[in-house]
Design a protein around this nucleic acid. Sequence first.
DNA 1: CGCTTATATGCCGATCGAGCTATATTGCCG
DNA 2: CGGCAATATAGCTCGATCGGCATATAAGCG
Lengths: 103, 103
Amino acid sequence: MASTFAVLADRSRREILDLLRERERPVGDLVEKLTLTQPTVSKHLKVLREAGLVEVRTDAQRRWYRLSPGPLAEVDAWLAPYRRMWEKSLDALERRLDEIEGD
Amino acid sequence: MASTFAVLADRSRREILDLLRERERPVGDLVEKLTLTQPTVSKHLKVLREAGLVEVRTDAQRRWYRLSPGPLAEVDAWLAPYRRMWEKSLDALERRLDEIEGD
DNA sequence: CGCTTATATGCCGATCGAGCTATATTGCCG
DNA sequence: CGGCAATATAGCTCGATCGGCATATAAGCG
């Protein structure tokens, strides 16, 4: 998981993931949506591939990319022990709102 | 949330968060645990502060740092729409295991 | 006030990463 | 085979960032 955060730190890559969440797409499709050149998009896709966040399927000259959410599950797992902390904060917030409401 | 991933991309900062998850700590305490110099740790704390991931409390010369999990909740929210995807993958994995078991 | 403790800030060197342009690769089609 | 379409790779530049050392700031103590 070490580097998954670094991969996700880039806005363009997060946008790519968001697009792939809808459906599998060829590179040209992504280039069209993002305001980046084709080589730049290809480079991001390489990073995402090596991080295991996407997978490719070849269809003639086209490469169809799709999401591979495994590493995201690891991020989710890293987050898990923190989850109870903000849940606690939210609980406190709720209690305060209840108090105000009670006035 | 934009930069929260960038902040989390650094291993040292994640270690600091992990330490603060246990309890509030002064800077010197963190320096002791990490293999970093005091100025470097202070710099990471500044980044974490500006990202809203930690808060400080002053006690004489000591500064006690504690976790402030708000931005992590935002990361969790970003992750949410992806969650069903790996849950689906896990389901598929389970079904396959069931098949093998069924042999 | 001078000394010590605790932390922050300034500055530097080295490295990394994002984006670009140009070019290579791969596969289709006539 | 020649040419077009789709994607990947190479090489470059610029700006950001990590880490360290030296130094500044702040607070307590005698």
